[in-house]
Design a binder for these strands. Structure first.
Lengths: 361, 361
DNA sequence: GTGAAAGCGCTAACAT
DNA sequence: ATGTTAGCGCTTTCAC
């Protein structure tokens, strides 16, 4: 930092009265000139606008809210803004909300249930609408909040609250078919937070998809849904003897790959790894990650639209099922199943060609 | 989504009058019981609190703002919330702001100057304080906003507005010394957005550090500060014959590495790459990226504290210089300089061993 | 210790 | 087409 605030305290912002006085009209005329332009004469309007300009007048939001009974603010609560999966969600919501002339309160729960509830309760009364992204709170509480404020829930389905979520079926189905075609018969799923709705969905969907194709599925975890979680989980996963690993999300998958590399296990020659989310990073790693793409932007857009049209009293456009479908992106971390015996003989390091070829400096 | 909103329109939230009536006191007593507990009798207070509880009363924020002249809201404007460099910034600021019982307006400028100005102006009057992260607007405008609302600027220094930024010197100095020690004598800097303050700083600092050590530095760009920018820049950088590449940020560095890999150029055997920021991804790639670590969390924390203490009227704690110093993290993308002749003979693909070993499915 | 009344800045009837 | 008035929900003198 540099200096002390030189501003001798900000001057009081000018009010509608000041504008009115300067323009030689009454406050209500100013209000009208601003809000219903065709209720005032052209000439008066010009004068008013000029005064507004000269004074840099901006209506006081609080006063406006108070009388109108609306805050022109929406609330968005996400589990973790630093998570590359949620950040784009926030961005998309922000742009839609802004387009509709709403401001946006942001809440980050830090993946914590109590914080989530506290934030939601605090925001509920102070916004015109609330958007909960991947909420963990029980359905009952969701409902009680919905009784308080227009509410939309994203990444989780509810029968009582307007909600929107992607369809895991297609992507997971494709992933399982993919590894099946590659000859894998024993897979493991490194699961995420137990109380997470999407973890439950993913677990369940993987289980049934594997079952259908006669693939044995071992569910491990829960692991924390980050790089470290995968890094830790990799060893347990390896110990199961499975030849393909489904990770709860890409971060976990990257952790798995990193740990596998450290142990000298080659991907995809010895083990196939499949992520979830398709965060930007997924395509930038080497080898690039085979993963299930989440249409997160579509969900963000749809949930914002739903909330907005709820408030506008219009009928929300129901997004086509296809937009919300997950799908598999095959990149380079999946390959044919290795013969089981191959594994467990590998020494400390394997084919890490480029990683170890680095010259000592 | 699932169903229509069953809530037959949210019931009007209860007011201080309702609480007062239920408790058998006047509204002013309720207000006092809530805001200055020791101005009311213990017993009355209990009754009031009980009614508050029963009615689920929460003071109307707008009404409160109007009379108090404060909004209990802070504004944060960032260039791109989806950028892994800014997301943690937002997270840290959010947590500090929340701790101080402020709500947070979020603004995302999408790296656009006009949007940045518009957002800042719109927020200025409606918040108690504004925090601008890496603003691009000219200093004069910054000042005019500062005249309007308590303002703190992060990632950019200003003599007239309280501001805080990291110190690029140490990290860049270390980076240049590092490549110098590895024998590199010709480097290139892939620059970022021209109007970005930190790009100017980085350019300048790289230039002088290289000059000091007798390293030739070619500055390329500007490139967009994303993966794609680096991907495109890699070819031009390669054409210069430089043996080490400094990227504007990690995303660019990853783009460079990806393109180099695609062209069969090995890192670090043939080319060394150094990033900037140390985003989480940087340590997860293979090879892990040598990069200059930005103490972004420290900056976020410090800027939030400064704003908060500005508002509280307390003296801001001046962060120690060390906290704000960048530093080099040496990982696996830097190696000894290759003999210049080695380059330019390499065919379309090179040591992409693992990438191409993938079985056809 | 508590109640009555005024007013924060704005908009929306209601007059004219 | 414009001015006057009341009041949104709350806090804070000012009385008592």
């Amino acid at each position: 930092m540099t200096d002390a605030p030189e501003s001798p305290v900000a001057p009081r912002p000018s009010t509608i009265h000041a504008v009115a006085a300067l323009a030689g009209v009454s406050p209500s005329t100013v209000s009208r000139a601003l809000n219903s332009p065709d209720m005032v004469r052209q000439a008066t309007r010009q004068r008013v606008l000029a005064s507004v300009e000269r004074l840099g007048y901006q209506p006081n939001r609080a006063a406006r809210s108070l009388v109108l009974g609306r805050t022109a603010t929406l609330g968005l609560i996400v589990p973790d803004i630093a998570n590359p999966f949620y950040a784009p969600f926030v961005k998309v919501v922000h742009s839609h909300v802004r387009e509709a002339e709403y401001a946006l309160f942001l809440g980050d729960t830090d993946e914590d249930l109590a914080t989530e509830v506290a934030l939601a309760r605090a925001m509920a009364r102070q916004v015109d609408g609330l958007l909960l992204c991947s909420p963990r709170m029980p359905g009952a509480r969701l409902r009680s909040i919905a009784a308080t404020v227009p509410l939309v829930v994203a990444n989780r389905l509810s029968r009582t609250v307007p909600s929107i979520a992607m369809d895991f079926g297609p992507g997971i189905g494709q992933a399982v078919m993919h590894v099946h075609a590659l000859g894998h018969r024993h897979c493991v799923f490194l699961s995420g937070p137990r109380d997470s709705w999407s973890n439950q969905q993913r677990s369940r969907t993987f289980a049934s998809a594997c079952h259908r194709l006669g693939i044995e599925l071992t569910v491990l975890g829960p692991y924390e849904p980050f790089f470290g979680g995968g890094y830790r989980g990799a060893d347990e996963a390896l110990a199961t003897g499975a030849t393909a690993m489904f990770a709860y999300n890409d971060l976990v998958a990257l952790g798995v790959m990193s740990r596998l590399a450290a142990r000298g296990v080659r991907v995809p020659e010895e083990i196939s790894v499949i992520g979830f989310d398709d965060i930007p990073m997924a395509s930038m790693t080497s080898p690039p990650l085979t993963t299930v793409v989440m249409p997160i932007a579509a969900v963000a857009k749809a949930s914002a639209s739903i909330l907005l049209s709820l408030l506008a009293g219009t009928v929300p456009r129901r997004p086509a099922g296809k937009e919300l479908a997950t799908r598999l992106v095959i990149r380079d971390t999946t390959g044919t199943a290795a013969v089981p015996s191959t594994r467990s003989v590998v020494p400390g390091r394997g084919g890490t060609e480029r990683g170890t070829a680095r010259p000592r400096s």
